[in-house]
């Protein structure tokens, strides 16, 4: 558990370093996600340096435990809405309409395009 947290934080740290040094517009944790993916793909070969990721299931169990309460982690940012109640009051109707309509369009278009091309490439719904 402690080792897994060290691996997660090390990946995030390395991701932040890569993001800052290279100037690519990708958040550090997202680069960290890619690094952890690479670690998992290569873990048989690098298990000597990464005991926690060597395949005893601790990494999976800890990650799933953390992700089970992913919603909790957005609560502090969500409370931040109280700081902008003035703008939400002034442009509220426009913001709500734009947010709702654009989100619904984005959801439907993404899913439609995905399904159309998944059918074509697989010859039918998987």
């Amino acid at each position: 558990m402690v080792q897994v947290f060290a691996v997660l934080l090390a990946c995030q740290l390395a991701g932040e370093v890569v993001a800052r040094m290279s100037g690519v517009p990708v958040p550090g944790p997202v680069i960290g996600l890619m690094l952890l993916f690479a670690v998992m793909a290569w873990r048989q070969r690098i298990s000597a340096v990464l005991p926690a990721a060597s395949g005893d299931g601790t990494l999976e169990a800890t990650a799933h435990g953390l992700l089970r309460h992913l919603s909790l982690l957005f609560v502090p940012a969500g409370v931040g809405v109280i700081q902008r109640l003035d703008v939400l009051g002034r442009d509220g109707v426009a913001l709500v309409v734009a947010l709702v309509v654009s989100s619904v369009l984005g959801l439907v278009v993404s899913a439609l395009v995905f399904r159309a091309l998944a059918r074509r490439s697989a010859g039918g719904p998987a």
């Binding site: 947290f5 997660l8 934080l9 990946c11 995030q12 991701g15 958040p27 944790p29 997202v30 960290g32 996600l33 890619m34 690094l35 952890l36 993916f37 998992m40 990494l59 999976e60 800890t62 990650a63 799933h64 953390l66 992700l67 992913l70 982690l73």
Partner: peptide, 8 residues
């Protein structure tokens, strides 16, 4: 760290 854990 939770974003990194999405790799799993």
């Amino acid at each position: 760290p939770a974003t990194v854990a999405l790799a799993v």
